[in-house]
Amino acid sequence: MINFQFVRTSVIKTALGLVSKDSKATFIAGGTNLVDLMKRGVTAPEKLIDINHLPLKQIELKNNVLHIGALVSNSALAENQLVKEKFPLLMLALKAGASAQLRNVATVGGNMMQRTRCGYFYDTTMPCNKRQPGSGCGAIGGYNRMHAIFGTSEFCIAVHPSDMCVGLVALDAQVVLASIKGERKINFIDFHRLAGTTPEKDNNLQKGELIVRLEIPINNLNKNFHYLKVRDRTSYAFALVSVAAALEINNNTISNARLAMGGVAHKPWRLQLVEEFLKGKPATTATFEEAAKLAMNGAKGFGENDFKLKLAPNTIIEALTLAKAKA
């Protein structure tokens, strides 16, 4: 690791200024992913701006919208009473990720910025278009058991590794971004990108921008919900497939639904068409099976991850079943 410069500030404006004028500078919050990547030589910023002291750690309910500061730790968010009551789906997603120690340090903003776990991305001697554009994709034709089945491109089939983000995309969250020019707000679903021809870009954050907070509108999806993560061991492993499911059920009829998947795409994979399909249908296994089938439209395997074409719909069925059974 190069001996980068280290600068700390407790003023948002100062932090933004420092990064905007220095192309080799980057923010560090929890550091649980960035330090890992720096140790592996995947990234090598020359200046780190420590933003842990910025005033971005509040969780507040304002006008039926939950505001979550970008520096709130994953643990603090999962343990927050408002989150437990209003967005228990998010709580489950958070607790499915990483380990207690990592969640204590990893921040909301950092979790969103988390990079893929693809082995080719992490090994600087192997090809990876995400790490080194133009070098090729090692996973296509290689080890791709963990990789994407939706929205892939010939340049990259990596998946976004977050669980939290799967919960957030299902909850219609919005992201507030700040730069020296001011703030802008985008839908969470538009934050992460598909790989396309530019897999080096994980998201639509502009250079010099900082995630400052999330906003989640209150909903009625806190009764019938489930986050189901299928992985190779019981805990502390990335998802093969995960499903965030939430339903509003009246007289066994689904009036509202949210469905998103993790471990299947370059971004948290929201299934809005399937949600529309579910609305007005009876909350039965038959409905769930049809929904799962619909969810797989456009899915494509790459050999070792072909099993996801079966695992993904099955996981949707099980998550919806468990969500329904929750009440």
């Binding site: 082995g119 080719y120 992490y122 192997m126 090692g138 290689g142 080890y143 963990m146 492993a237 990335f238």
Partner: peptide, 11 residues
């Protein structure tokens, strides 16, 4: 490539 692709405790 002759290289391990999951040579860590996460994978």
């Amino acid at each position: 490539y002759g290289r391990y692709v999951n040579n860590n405790f996460a994978d």
